[in-house]
Amino acid sequence: MSERAAVGSVASEPVIEVDDLVVTFRGRRGGGTARALDGVNLAVGRGEIVALVGESGCGKTTLARSILGLERPASGEVRFQGEPLGYGGRALKAYRRRVQLVLQDPTGSLNPRQTVYEAVAEGPRVHRMADESGRVVKALSQAGIRPPERFFLRYPHELSGGQRQRVVIAGALALNPEVIVADEPVSSLDASVRGEILALLLQLREELELTLLVVTHDLGLAWNIADRLVVMYLGRVVEDGTTEQVLNNPQHPYTKALLSVVPEMEQVESIVLTGETPDCARIPTGCRFHPRCPAYASGEAEAAGIAADCRSRELPILGATGGHRAACWLVPAGDAPIPR
């Protein structure tokens, strides 16, 4: 655990920084503009595994896509090793050789008309890297497809779900990236395969010193692999800290609610949130979580004398760095451990 904390200290050298990022989507037929990301700060250190958690629709996938330059920000920026991301074709291509994506659905991520070899060789071919077949063999064995040659001619439909995801990961590894952004990498796989893929990701971090940003809605998964947890709600980061800090001592009522429904968490009374995530075209005033907040509804906020703030005072946006912190009026600002 201490080893994890050492690796996880962001202070060292952020590889990817997201600075006050806003991404909007134009609504259809007077639906208004949806602010999918509404001011997000994030820093991912070298060799770190950061898990981005939250409900569906909270903006975690949008954040992952923006980090890869697949969404253009309305304002704010994404930086890679201190350099702002360029959106020109050549700049993006060079950037994406170093930062790769693994998608949720391994079946859909592979072209049904390409063999395993072609799927993995695609990256090196596009980037005109030397020794294509050598790279493919290496990437496939790194991803746990062994012996690689036996799988060269297979089509995706001839592989199992876990194998497909390994091929997708191999495709990313073939480019020798520094960062892999994985969007729900195991959510479409069954439990036993899920463990294997997670073990693979951890092993790759050890062997290749990869930096990983894992998007997930599964806190159990985050607990297993992440050094740091970033909890998102409705386009903003609401809590950020090392995995131990966040899971052992959650500060934000939203995090508490998420944690209380993880089956592995014992002796915690389930807090079931009511309602859906609000429409991000109509974000509630004050704290954006207050309409669903159990602390607000139970009168805890009223007792603390901050209920009016919850309703109408805009919360400051959490910074990218610092210790364990949460965006909630109940939680005092600052890095100091918060007394309960």
Binding site: L70, G89, K93, Q100, D105, S109, E122
Partner: peptide, 14 residues
């Protein structure tokens, strides 16, 4: 609309 096009984009395909 399929994810493999997204993957191709990220792999650097023009």
């Amino acid at each position: 609309g399929r994810p493999y096009l997204e993957r191709a984009k990220v792999l650097g395909d023009s």
